[in-house]
């Protein structure tokens, strides 16, 4: 239903969302206060979710918000708060070790190169794809049909992790 001119509303929305996502990601790295970094992460997650929504993958977007922005990031913030130094303003300083700079820089450059290559060499469809009407149903069929064993295995793995976490938190009673 959208008319694709050179610069449409759709593009403007994408640019705004993408901007928020990238700014958030930069914030995670650059903020000196680790709480700010964690909150920036929330905005990054929200931006990614918004992109999912824009791509008509509403289910993925909602799950992204529910799980990553709503729950995981809160857990990260909790962990950060519990393990943090007293001085909150100086908890996320850039490292002074040159080796770390070198390693980080290499990984960043390699990632960027691979993404640029992937974007540049891929063949993109020239027409807009038909949005999937019942994405939830399709996902359900995949997860509980074709990949049911993997799905259940992941579930059991998570359960084990939860039990382990409880034992870690509660402590084993000495007999």
């Amino acid at each position: 239903m959208f008319e694709f001119s050179a610069f449409s509303l759709y593009d403007a929305a994408f640019l705004a969302i993408g901007g928020v996502t990238i700014l958030g990601a930069l914030g995670v790295v650059l903020f000196r206060n680790i709480i700010y970094s964690a909150l920036s992460l929330v905005f990054t997650m929200l931006g990614v979710a918004a992109i999912y929504f824009q791509l008509n993958a509403g289910f993925l977007g909602a799950i992204q918000i529910l799980v990553y922005a709503g729950a995981i990031s809160v857990l990260i913030i909790f962990a950060v708060m519990l393990l943090m130094n007293k001085e909150a303003r100086r908890t996320n300083l850039p490292t002074t070790r040159t080796k770390a700079w070198f390693a980080g820089g290499t990984i960043t450059v390699m990632m960027l190169a691979s993404i640029i290559a992937a974007v540049g060499f891929s063949e993109w469809p020239k027409t807009a794809l038909q949005g999937v009407d019942n994405s939830v149903g399709m996902l359900a069929e995949l997860m509980l049909g074709d990949y049911v064993i993997a799905f259940e295995a992941a579930a059991i793995l998570l359960l084990v992790a939860v039990i382990g976490a409880i034992i870690l938190a509660k402590g084993v009673e000495n007999k």
Partner: peptide, 13 residues
């Protein structure tokens, strides 16, 4: 399409 899920996920924020 996923209104209910959207509601829950927004509530979690």
């Amino acid at each position: 399409n996923i209104g209910l899920l959207f509601f829950i996920s927004m509530g979690s924020l």
